[in-house]
Nucleic acid binder design. Structure first.
Lengths: 225, 225
DNA sequence: TCCCCATGTCATCAAATCCTCATGTGTCCC
DNA sequence: GGGACACATGAGGATTTGATGACATGGGGA
């Protein structure tokens, strides 16, 4: 979800880029993939990546030089180089120029995923993803909810419903949609489960009402009218 | 010479052991070299090593199993495996069992030195060997835990679980994740092993509760909330 | 070898959670 | 005003989940 660890892949060969991206994504990473140094530089500027996988040779330059320069500016995101060369000098060069690891082509994507995991662990884990509305904060990663700064303790269902309403803030969410997303696909609850949960939620979300009911259509999370 | 970085080499082939030792020594490391797991275990007991180079197969056992077991006890010194095998599964297995890097024979001693340097740097800069949360201190290197300054004696499992929770402080850690990291890969989800260990931990960690259970999701180490 | 302690297992307890039902309240349309 | 409808509310009970204590087992050290 929102708080996945984010990884950048810089590789000009499209097939390889795709294969690597797919593997890393299926390993649970959030992946950005670009084809040259210029694009990488632009995307990295925003920050937020826990690790970067660089092909050594790119259409607009050698990535080792790029990394070396950025290291001198204090850039510290872990880097893994993919290199076609197999000479020892090259390997050592990669390390001494700010690389944290390298992999020689051809390599296994599974192995790449394992190495990236190690590097990311080292870099610390991803940033919190927190949804906000008025004085309400929903931290999806930590499963925490705060209203006006105070921590609320919600049950699983309560959190699930609130989180879903939050992702659809300002929109009307129907009962069917809510059931579909927050309940297991089997239950055909005749009873008013949703109303019950919403009531408990309202009880815990003290303060100005945020969950508005739209008669005949569902609920809507919003600050005002 | 007193404060040189200290490295352990565990390799049964004498020629190779000598070659590696000489190279690492000339690279500025202080080197201890032994030929089997038993000797390694004895020498490692004293602590003080920043990195260990393990041959995969040793006369008295497979070093991967050894490292995996020690990781579960909370041992955290970076490890590099030397392996004759070149299959991808073996490589990945090395990582998931607590290895930080590996090298396939035949390898260049210069490259080995480069990798060892990286591992030692990681050990030094990476995470501090003592983790803190409120009045709780977990010294990963010494395997010591203090609460409000008083030393607690924890069993291996207890320490492993606490350390893992500590590295994920403030986050919710699921039972599966816990089992994956602190137990051998087989264990059935039948019994409540985790609950048992957590209970014992709570019993020893006197004072304000630090291990909070998040119903339906797992445990969370935190000061409040 | 024997004992002790760490660890895993089981049975049982306590509590949180969630669903259901019965009923109350408001709204809209005739 | 009176239904019909949609939602709100509150209580009770069933189910799930974690906590706890007792016990079995087994490996390591004295």
């Amino acid at each position: 979800m929102g708080n996945a660890v984010r990884v950048m892949v810089v590789e000009d060969n499209e097939d390889l880029r795709l294969a690597v991206s797919v593997e890393l994504a299926s390993a649970g990473f959030e992946v950005d993939a670009v084809g040259d140094l210029a694009a990488a530089h632009a995307a990295l500027g925003a920050g937020g990546h826990s690790c970067v996988v660089f092909d050594r040779m790119l259409p607009d330059g050698d990535s080792i030089g790029y990394v070396h320069r950025r290291r001198q500016e204090g850039w510290s995101v872990p880097v893994l180089f993919l290199t076609a060369r197999d000479s020892v000098e090259d390997r050592v060069a990669g390390f001494t120029h700010g690389g944290d690891d390298y992999l020689v082509k051809p390599f296994s994507v599974a192995e790449l995923a394992a190495r990236v995991r190690v590097l990311c662990r080292r870099a610390g884990l991803g940033r919190p993803s927190v949804l906000r509305l008025a004085d309400l904060e929903v931290d999806c990663a930590r499963r925490e909810v705060r209203r006006a700064g105070v921590l609320l303790t919600l049950s699983g269902k309560e959190f699930a419903v609130l989180e879903f309403l939050m992702t659809r803030a300002e929109q009307v969410v129907g009962r069917a949609e809510l059931i579909e997303h927050c309940w297991d696909a089997e239950n055909d609850p005749m009873a008013n489960v949703v109303e019950a949960v919403v009531k408990r939620l309202r009880g815990k979300l003290r303060g100005p009402e945020l969950i508005h009911t739209v008669r005949g259509r569902g609920y809507r999370l919003a600050t005002a009218g």
